[in-house]
């Protein structure tokens, strides 16, 4: 199963805390988006392994853009 981690709001990716292949748990801090001059941590939606990361630090993202894909068993 693949779970997409999507941007809850438009903004700029300023920090990525996960790497492809990492095993992650629900509510880990995956990355940080800056919007309205505020840093908002985006949390991992489920337990699993990071399959893909679709953005890099400095990217501007729109709402609902896929940030990363988490693979679960």
């Amino acid at each position: 199963m693949q779970h997409k981690m999507v941007a809850p709001m438009a903004g700029k990716v300023i920090q990525i805390n996960i790497n492809v292949g990492d095993s992650v748990e629900e509510d880990d801090e995956g990355l940080v988006i800056e919007a309205m001059k505020m840093e908002t941590p985006i949390f991992v939606p489920c337990n699993g392994v990071v399959g893909q990361i679709k953005v890099k630090a400095g990217d501007n993202v729109e709402e609902d853009d896929v940030l990363a894909v988490i693979e679960t068993e």
């Binding site: 709001m9 438009a10 509510d27 919007a35 309205m36 505020m38 985006i42 949390f43």
Partner: peptide, 10 residues
């Protein structure tokens, strides 16, 4: 943690 209210609050 997964409740992102910022844009609704604007």
């Amino acid at each position: 943690k997964k409740n992102y209210l910022l844009m609704y609050a604007m």
